[in-house]
């Protein structure tokens, strides 16, 4: 066990864990931030996505030792009151069904729009391709992202 300090949703936190403990378990089970979800455990489905230094990244196989000193944002920290334009568009377009992948969807979408204010359809598909939704909400995910882009114009 060792101590690791990082910034989480704008606040300094420090946790004790084995260095190879995945960030996801630290967030969910030690720190109680259950927005990021466990689903595949091998970083191929995106349900566990958080922002690390502003960029969407899976947290399920990222060891906590690599997070030392970094800035981590989870869905809980994306906005103070769920009012990020993507979150509002998600409600407007009634995107979620079971909802389990949606934290990952929103975190990837936010990261995409941070890098590219006006992605086209292909760029949206490319940017969102790492998140799997079994309920099939992809159309509405795309619609919600396109709504935010249109609102920004």
């Amino acid at each position: 066990m060792a101590k690791f300090a990082f910034n989480l949703n704008g606040k300094k936190v420090s946790v004790e864990a084995d260095p190879d403990t995945p960030l996801l378990w630290v967030l969910r089970e030690k720190l109680g931030l259950t927005g990021p979800k466990y689903s595949c455990g091998i970083a191929v489905c995106g349900a566990c996505a958080v922002h690390v230094n502003g960029e969407a990244a899976p947290s399920c196989n990222t060891p906590i030792m690599l997070i030392e000193g970094r800035n981590v944002t989870t869905i809980e920290g994306l906005s103070e009151d769920g009012s990020h334009p993507l979150q509002e568009a998600w409600i407007e377009e009634q995107v979620p069904q079971c909802g389990y992948c949606q934290s990952g969807m929103i975190m990837f979408a936010a990261s995409l729009l941070n890098k590219n204010k006006k992605p086209n359809r292909e760029e949206i598909a490319e940017g969102m391709n790492r998140v799997v939704c079994r309920c099939g909400t992809y159309l509405r995910v795309r619609k919600a992202i396109e709504k935010v882009i249109a609102d920004n114009e």
Binding site: G35, P36, T74, I75, E76, G82, P96
Partner: peptide, 10 residues
């Protein structure tokens, strides 16, 4: 159920 499914609280 949708609002809670956009902010991690569901």
């Amino acid at each position: 159920d949708i609002p809670a499914k956009t902010n991690g609280s569901a």
